[in-house]
Amino acid sequence: MTPDLPYWPAAMDQKSAAAYCGVCVETFKKVCPVRPLKFTESTRGERYLRQRLDEWLASLDPNKQDAAPKRKFGERLYGGQSEAGRA
Rank of each mutant, 00 (worst) to 15 (best):
2 T>S: 14
3 P>G: 04
3 P>R: 04
3 P>A: 08
3 P>T: 10
4 D>G: 11
4 D>T: 12
6 P>A: 08
6 P>L: 07
7 Y>V: 13
7 Y>A: 10
7 Y>T: 14
8 W>G: 03
8 W>M: 06
8 W>T: 03
9 P>K: 07
10 A>T: 03
10 A>Y: 00
11 A>H: 09
11 A>Y: 06
11 A>P: 01
12 M>S: 01
12 M>R: 05
13 D>K: 13
13 D>F: 05
14 Q>T: 05
15 K>E: 12
15 K>V: 07
16 S>A: 15
16 S>M: 13
17 A>R: 02
19 A>K: 12
19 A>S: 13
20 Y>V: 05
20 Y>D: 02
20 Y>C: 06
21 C>Y: 03
21 C>I: 02
22 G>C: 01
22 G>N: 03
22 G>Q: 02
22 G>Y: 04
22 G>P: 01
23 V>E: 06
23 V>L: 05
24 C>F: 10
25 V>Y: 09
27 T>K: 10
27 T>S: 09
27 T>Y: 02
28 F>N: 01
28 F>H: 08
29 K>F: 03
30 K>I: 09
30 K>Q: 15
31 V>S: 03
33 P>I: 09
33 P>N: 06
34 V>T: 00
34 V>Q: 00
36 P>R: 01
36 P>T: 02
36 P>E: 04
37 L>K: 04
37 L>Q: 10
38 K>M: 05
40 T>Y: 10
41 E>Y: 10
41 E>C: 04
41 E>M: 00
42 S>G: 05
42 S>I: 06
43 T>G: 01
43 T>R: 08
44 R>C: 08
44 R>K: 11
45 G>M: 00
45 G>N: 01
45 G>L: 02
45 G>R: 01
46 E>N: 07
47 R>E: 04
48 Y>A: 01
49 L>C: 08
49 L>V: 00
49 L>T: 07
50 R>I: 06
50 R>Q: 13
50 R>M: 03
50 R>P: 04
52 R>K: 08
52 R>L: 12
53 L>D: 00
54 D>K: 06
54 D>Y: 04
54 D>R: 10
56 W>M: 07
57 L>E: 04
57 L>F: 04
58 A>I: 05
59 S>Q: 02
61 D>L: 02
61 D>Y: 02
61 D>I: 03
64 K>M: 08
65 Q>M: 15
65 Q>R: 15
66 D>P: 09
66 D>C: 13
69 P>G: 03
69 P>T: 14
70 K>M: 12
70 K>T: 11
71 R>K: 11
73 F>I: 06
74 G>L: 15
74 G>P: 08
74 G>R: 11
75 E>S: 06
76 R>K: 07
76 R>D: 05
76 R>F: 08
76 R>T: 06
77 L>I: 12
77 L>P: 06
77 L>Y: 11
77 L>K: 11
78 Y>Q: 07
80 G>I: 00
81 Q>S: 14
83 E>N: 07
83 E>D: 05
84 A>N: 09
84 A>F: 14
85 G>K: 10
85 G>C: 06
85 G>H: 09
85 G>S: 12
87 A>W: 13
